[in-house]
Nucleic acid binder design. Sequence first.
DNA 1: ATCGCTTTTCGTACGCTGTACTAAAAGAGA
DNA 2: TCTCTTTTAGTACAGCGTACGAAAAGCGAT
Lengths: 222, 222
Amino acid sequence: MPDTAQPLPRRRLPLSRERVLGCAVDLADESGIAALTIRSLAQSMGTKPMSLYYYVANKDEILDGIVDMVFSEIELPSPAGDWREEMYRRAHGVRSALKRHPWAVGLLESRSSPGEANLRHHEATLGTLRAAGFSVQMTAHAYALLDSYIYGFALQEAALPFDGRDTASEITAPIVERFSTGQYPHMMEIATEHVLKPGYDFGDEFDFGLNLVLDGLSRSMR
Amino acid sequence: MPDTAQPLPRRRLPLSRERVLGCAVDLADESGIAALTIRSLAQSMGTKPMSLYYYVANKDEILDGIVDMVFSEIELPSPAGDWREEMYRRAHGVRSALKRHPWAVGLLESRSSPGEANLRHHEATLGTLRAAGFSVQMTAHAYALLDSYIYGFALQEAALPFDGRDTASEITAPIVERFSTGQYPHMMEIATEHVLKPGYDFGDEFDFGLNLVLDGLSRSMR
DNA sequence: ATCGCTTTTCGTACGCTGTACTAAAAGAGA
DNA sequence: TCTCTTTTAGTACAGCGTACGAAAAGCGAT
């Protein structure tokens, strides 16, 4: 063993702001946002901590940057298409992006200044609503409503102890046991008669609310 | 000046888990969640850092604890009342609690195991919906929808750079200037024709979405 | 090649964090 | 006053973000 093993990188690509942010996203995905430290990020890129500071001013800029990278993954809605369909697709786009990167939801609260991709996303969404004939005020209402629902759903999804598709029952069983005192009969009921049924996926709840919201919006336009 | 000034406490009340969590909430409210450190918390209570560990196992337990304290401030809905009114009041109760303690929203994503107050709140809400005649499945739908909307709204509210009532224009003016390139015409439109109008308060948007959601739910019950 | 200048990388060090371990102090009952 | 339990602290350590300055690498002109 003549050499200590290089951490990951094949041949040490040249650094760049984009590569730093990209690796930061990967690291956060793999190990959680808490494990994303300047030191761990540098190591995953085969560099030293202080080298990163040539491309980013500080860690906050990294956090702002990776949130914006998540937004950049989302396909923009088109003002040319049917607004309802576009809003449906956008909602699913945002949700799936936030599901791929669950740490992003928690970051939204603390990051105040939006990045370019975020702004583009906002702009395209507002444009689609306005093009559909919503008034300025109604567009503001609709936008606040849709984003609240999407972000809130993603927030709940991120807080779930289990990971969607694979057995909710395995994880929730011990939690449910905590309810067996009878203190929480309705939670028990929901758990046993709904959540613990085979094939249950919390993500499936998304469409119910989304359609209800879109129905309401189309009604309030007419 | 014979004595160094005691930080805050009038006469150093006896410590207790409740007092630790209460002071933690106060400190987070005043200085932000980032400023809530074991050391700063101990100092604000007139104690030394390690003394706190007699009442809490670690900092995570403090974070879990203060989230649950926020829930404990929220009045529970009653299964005896009109479900729509109860859900309306609950929604506003949750939102105002999360507005008083904006840091709580960001914490929700990372804390997985809910506390007692949280569970009681869930239970009462589910009970109210079931009592109103919603099926088990419909109750799950309604609950996911309502909570998503409420949490998402609170999340957006917490991320706002300005603080509700007082002038949105002062803060947003420089941001709007960033749009004056014409890249974001619809955001400009919303800003100038809606957000920057005197008396605008993002919080007022809450009722629009909430009523739309409640309308949709009552429709889907019938 | 060699110089000089810009761009990029990194070593060291500082103050902050959570907390493990241990000891001291305070309180309570005999 | 002695003893035992409960409560409070001191010290120390590893890990964090990052300020500062030096080293290295790249590169056009001589």
